[in-house]
């Protein structure tokens, strides 16, 4: 069952990479978002994918009922999602500022700032 998810991850990575290689800054933002999904899914899929229970301990028990999903990568992804949101907002605002300051919607025109 993991196989189709491997394909989905590959497709998301390919799409994200393609988008961040574009010149239009909006497309780059979209590409970064796609890469974020891809990375989160990757961690989620490769760590013991189970259709089983969430990692919750039922009241009165001492451990989740097996088979349960691996809690550790979930904790990683959870913070990654929220941080991803913060970073995405930061990127968007950064591009907005660059656009306002230089008037360039074409990332190539921002090259001058690196010179």
């Amino acid at each position: 069952m993991e196989f189709i998810w491997a394909i989905v991850i590959g497709a998301l990575y390919a799409a994200g990479l393609y988008m961040i290689m574009r010149r239009s800054i909006v497309k780059i933002i979209l590409g970064l978002a796609l890469l974020g999904y891809a990375a989160n899914l990757l961690i989620f899929i490769v760590s013991n994918l189970t259709r089983g229970n969430p990692p919750l301990v039922p009241p009165g028990a001492t451990a989740p009922i097996a088979p349960y999903a691996d809690p550790l990568p979930q904790a990683l992804i959870l913070t990654a999602i929220v941080i991803g949101f913060g970073v995405q907002a930061f990127t968007i605002v950064l591009f907005r500022r660059a656009y306002r300051s230089f008037g360039a919607d074409d990332i190539d025109e921002l090259r001058t700032t690196e010179r």
Binding site: F3, A6, I9, G10, A14, A15, V46
Partner: peptide, 16 residues
């Protein structure tokens, strides 16, 4: 991009 995506799929399968 497609090459990169394919690599990620392959790496995922290896990791699995």
């Amino acid at each position: 991009a497609i090459a990169g995506g394919a690599l990620m799929t392959i790496l995922t399968l290896i990791a699995l």
